[in-house]
């Protein structure tokens, strides 16, 4: 699985939504499924999937799928 596929799968699992709804534009609080509890689960799942520990500032900035890719790139992960 590529990192992009892993990311999409992790978002779909954490937000409990269909993987087809995971687009770069999808943003925190823009759908009812991505609320603060789901955000907590998302952060924990992303850390588990990519085996990283995110900085608090990065968690605060993780406001959309596109932003997540940008932030995760700082942890030596590539998203094509």
């Amino acid at each position: 699985m590529t990192n992009t596929e892993k990311l999409q799968q992790t978002f779909a699992t954490a937000l409990a939504i269909d993987i087809n709804r995971i687009t770069d534009e999808l943003a925190y609080n823009s759908i009812k499924e991505w609320d603060s509890t789901a955000h907590m689960i998302l952060v924990a799942e992303l850390e588990a999937t990519f085996d990283i520990l995110l900085d608090t500032d990065d968690i605060i900035d993780m406001s959309s799928v596109a932003e997540s890719k940008r932030i995760l790139a700082k942890y030596d992960l590539r998203f094509d």
Partner: peptide, 10 residues
């Protein structure tokens, strides 16, 4: 609490 809860949430 921040760090532990993230591991526990998994």
């Amino acid at each position: 609490c921040q760090l532990a809860s993230r591991l526990m949430t998994r």
